[in-house]
Design a binder for these strands. Structure first.
Lengths: 251, 251
DNA sequence: CGGGAGGTTGACAATCGTCAATCAGAGTGG
DNA sequence: CCACTCTGATTGACGATTGTCAACCTCCCG
């Protein structure tokens, strides 16, 4: 993990893009975001950005790479509750509350911009457009958590996995990170299992089942090819309303 | 369902109490909250406050009674994702996003204050203390959703139910609605099942199991007596950190 | 007194977990 | 280049938790 101060304002461009998605911003709003003091850190795979129990004073934005949020369970297992990619405001969740109730861990190598919490709050209230966008972002996160509850609570393993794969493909497309029919899934089968609340052995069988049904193809364990994303969405009981995307991106 | 304009400012007192819990408020903050335009509606049990798919323009605060949030699943089942009680800001979640991605339904008779969304947003940015409190409230909701994911994703049925019962008892105490060792649970076994991701038949057996182990007693299906809440918390893998309560209330 | 919602129970089935072995691929040091 | 090792993927046999189906019960209320 390296640590470096970042002076090019463009480092926070993914944050502007993200917030602009939720709320109309003017030039001064954009300038205020880009002017936020921040440090860019590079993380290795498996490195923790925040650990459950940490006292948190910085928020962070993913600049590249992928990360997950997860909680530890009493019996030693874990539950992944979110997957994050470029542009995601990863830690408003923990930082505004003062103490991390869950961990954020890198899946791949990646760069993260760390911003002091107080500066985030200051900008949020000095520039209401920015504040509304941040608030909306946290609300959409909450909506995604609700869908995640429904996924692990009431769907069978095949449906759960299809749902996760389809959500990931759509989010990649919206973030401008790839096509929705072909992508590299940066997770091991054990991590997928921790995300869907099943065991890694059962995840292996479930993926095979999806492949046998012709819903996905895999050249290697990480690469996912979706032949017909409408069929996969249907198999995954996937309705993108909970992502609160703009119309044109859903279809 | 009756509809009446409410002029006594005291109707929003539960909202002041709730927001004051999250952020220090001064006299003007409190006055601004109490001055919010609102209508008080009375709802019957099972009545919907908001339905999945509704276009939402009002936020609401529970003044009395209990409600749940739930999502419908493709196979016709449903998943309850939250339980709400007096003082809870139920629908910032839906209203700020414009379209409801889930439903909110009454469990018991109850009164709800409906506040125009735009007024909520206005106060949030005119009075940053209030805005921070609202933001914090939505973040705590998100934290509770994460714990709920972990509950349905990685715990067995007995642990899930014990966790839910213990969380409910602690929240009741914090809300000033009762003791943590004796309370009326306003949910049928089918609703409890929909909250924990199991079937109602299995819920029945799980509750009996908790009773046989001496962790709870039930005089009738709704009344829960917790003999030793520390034991129940332990059986439910319950660590209240995710509720972000103040120290003195956790012990 | 009749109807209905919710609770309770038993028998059986299905999904999913556990355990354990094997395999495949990447990286390392000799 | 070749063992060696480690992580993750794959598979089979078996067991446990949970779901399904169906019956019956209990209480409340009109």
């Amino acid at each position: 993990m390296t640590d470096s101060l970042e002076h090019r304002p463009s480092a926070l461009q993914p944050m502007v893009r993200k917030l602009e998605y939720w709320s109309k911003l003017d030039e001064m709003d954009r300038a205020a975001i880009l002017a936020l003091p921040h440090a860019v850190k590079s993380f290795d795979p498996h490195a923790y950005i925040v650990r459950e129990g940490d006292v948190t004073t910085t928020s962070c934005i993913m600049l590249s790479g992928y990360s997950i949020r997860h909680k530890l369970i009493g019996d030693g297992s874990r539950q992944i509750v979110a997957i994050h990619m470029k542009g995601d405001l990863v830690d408003l969740q923990n930082s505004l509350l003062g103490m991390a109730d869950h961990s954020v861990q890198m899946l791949t190598p990646g760069r993260v911009a760390m911003i002091p919490r107080d500066e985030m709050v200051r900008v949020a209230f000095e520039r209401p457009n920015v504040g509304k966008a941040m608030w909306t972002d946290t609300l959409v996160d909450a909506s995604m958590f609700r869908e995640w509850i429904a996924n692990v609570g009431r769907r069978d393993s095949t449906t759960r996995v299809a749902h996760l794969l389809r959500e990931f493909s759509l989010r990649l497309k919206v973030a401008g990170l790839g096509e929705e029919t072909d992508y590299e899934l940066p997770m091991s089968q054990e991590q997928l299992a921790d995300a869907t609340g099943i065991t890694s052995v059962h995840m292996n069988r479930t993926l095979k089942g999806l492949e046998v049904k012709g819903l996905i193809e895999r050249r290697n364990p990480q690469s996912i090819h979706i032949g017909d994303w409408k069929m996969l969405a249907s198999a995954g009981d996937f309705n993108p309303a909970y992502l609160h995307l703009k119309e044109r991106e859903v279809a």
